[in-house]
C-alpha cells in the first residue's frame, strides 16, 4: 500500500526541502516568494493527511487558515515587490540592502 501516512509525510518532506533550497540558493525575489508558498503548501499537506489519519476536522480547519494567511501574505508581498522594483529596477534580492547598510534610497 503506497498511500499511507508515511508516504504523504515523505512527499511533504521533499516539497519542504525543495522550497528551502529555493529560498537559500536563488536570488530572484519572485522565486524566493514562490518557494515560501511551496513550503506552506507542504505543511498543508501534512495537516490534511493527519486529518484523515485521526478522522478529525480540526486540522483541515488549520489548513484552511494557512491558505487564508497565504493569500494575505501574497497581497502584501506582491505590493512590496512592486515598490522595490520601482525604486531599484531589478529583481535581485542582493540589491535590496537599504536596511543593512547606510545608503540613500
Amino acid at each position: 500500500m503506497a498511500s499511507s501516512l508515511f508516504s504523504y509525510f515523505v512527499v511533504a518532506m521533499v516539497l519542504l526541502s525543495i522550497g528551502l533550497v529555493g529560498v537559500f540558493s536563488r536570488k530572484n525575489i519572485f522565486v524566493i516568494y514562490m518557494s515560501i508558498e511551496l513550503m506552506l503548501s507542504a505543511v498543508n499537506l501534512i495537516f490534511v493527511a493527519l486529518s484523515n489519519y485521526y478522522h478529525s476536522m480540526a486540522s483541515q480547519i488549520i489548513a484552511m487558515m494557512v491558505i487564508a494567511i497565504a493569500a494575505a501574505e501574497a497581497a502584501l508581498f506582491l505590493s512590496l515587490i512592486v515598490v522595490l522594483y520601482r525604486r531599484k529596477k531589478t529583481l535581485d534580492s542582493d540589491m535590496y540592502k537599504a536596511l543593512s547598510q547606510k545608503e540613500t534610497l
Partner: peptide
Amino acid sequence: GLFALLSASFLFMVQIIVYAGAVITLF
C-alpha cells in the same frame, strides 16, 4: 488532487479556487 484523495473535498476546491485561481494568477 492529493487533498481530494484524502477525502478533503472542500479543501480541494479551496486550494484550486484560492491558490491556483487567485494567488498564482495575481502573481
